[in-house]
Nucleic acid binder design. Structure first.
Lengths: 238, 238
DNA sequence: CCCGCTATTTACTTCAGAGTAAAAAGATTG
DNA sequence: CAATCTTTTTACTCTGAAGTAAATAGCGGG
């Protein structure tokens, strides 16, 4: 019997995943995928790996099709198991969503910490943040992390997630404010700027495919570039 | 008995609406709102007005909380009636969503037609499009129109809506491409630029409140400004 | 090769919310 | 003020998907 206490620490193990298109008929029990057959680990490692794979499949599905358009049967089918098997790894659907949000916040924090550690003017750091964040979102963990379904979270979890997001927002704004102060960024409203940029990024998770016209790195470069151009100070203007 | 054939022409009649926060308990039957008590019209006019009010309340709710987080009971309660009453005006929930998408597309077309009719360089027209579009979205019809739940539409309707959206996208891209040609816009990828900007706008509908820090007009100005700065050509660069 | 633990399945229950039927309440008109 | 049409309600049904119980299959050690 495995513990189902909060254990969202399983952000590990890269798993190759092909973004699946919605099927009209559930393809009854396809061959088990990825982590589900990868052997050669301790029991606890396997548990963690499988849980992580589950979360990441779900994250991709949620990002691409939305939380409510993704049933647990869908996820289970994609993993090659049946729905109740999922309940061995998570308590309920909400916990999956929560785990996804945790990843999302984690990536944000990572990008932020990186950006804040950089030398240079405010603009440079803001742009670095943007680039790194998009890189992370489009990278290993897939276009998986940015979710919008806060309302489906339990109040307790929602509080945690929203708090994390707010922290990210504040640091982002503060970075922008510093840029305005040091003269590298033109006079923009930090809050609005963050909303503007984050909107683009949130939306990206809905259409981005790693095998599309642009890969993750290119997306990161271009998004960062848009942001940079839209906020950088120019000699000949306010 | 009233016909329930496709009749999504009811985009009329401004109705004052205060964005309602989600209630844990459904406030049982509050006083009827707005159009529901406005008398002094022919029957057909009343029908149209009420249907329009219904669609617009729903549109706001969908935008703010999402399609699946909004039950018909919610909408009915907000209007001060019971759920079955809604079925007198629409065939089902999907039809409401479809009507919302039609409004959304309509606003896009309006903004686009306006922008294309302008003289001036590509950049000017692109910026005018952005401003007008945000103006419309945040205006009379509220932050109501941009929806993301394409998947909940019937295949037939989905086709229509997606086609409309694609048309908008193409015209938007084409405007950008022209700007690049005439030298007013720097070398950006039109498609990506559209996605970038539309993401911000889509996201805006989730948080914008007319009574917030910025009103609709300010939002329009600032979003247009961000876009302008991010894509305009400069003398001293590529 | 049997025991006990891990993992997954089959076969359910439950519930929210979409949708419907039929009765009741409101209008409008002769 | 009855007759009839319009609108809304009460009281349901139905369904999809979340979630659970209990049986079963697989595995590692003794």
């Amino acid at each position: 019997m495995h513990r189902i206490e909060p254990r969202a620490d399983c952000l590990s193990l890269p798993v190759l995943v092909i973004a699946g298109r919605r099927e009209t008929t559930l393809p009854a029990r396809p061959r088990k995928a990825d982590a589900w057959k990868d052997a050669g680990q301790s029991r606890d490692e396997q548990f963690a790996a499988k849980r992580a794979a589950l979360i990441r499949k779900a994250a991709r599905a949620f990002s691409a099709r939305g939380f409510y358009n993704t049933s647990l049967d869908d996820i289970a089918a994609e993993l090659g198991v049946t729905k109740p098997a999922l309940y061995y790894y998570v308590k309920n659907k909400e916990e999956i969503l929560y785990a996804c949000h945790l990843i999302s916040n984690e990536l944000g924090t990572q990008a932020m910490t990186f950006a804040e550690s950089l030398p240079g003017c405010g603009l440079d750091r803001v742009v670095a943040l943007a680039r790194r964040y998009v890189e992370l979102l489009t990278g290993e963990f897939g276009a998986s992390a940015v979710l919008m379904e806060f309302d489906a979270l339990q109040p307790e979890n929602k509080k945690t997630i929203v708090a994390g997001r707010n922290r990210f927002d504040r640091r982002f704004r503060s970075l922008i404010a510093k840029g305005v102060e040091d003269g590298s960024i033109r006079k923009v409203d930090p809050k609005l700027t963050v909303f503007f940029f984050m909107g683009s990024v949130n939306w990206m998770t809905r259409w981005f495919r790693p095998d599309g016209t642009f890969n993750g790195q290119e997306m990161a470069d271009r998004f960062a570039d848009y942001l940079q151009e839209s906020i950088k100070a120019r000699s000949n203007q306010t």
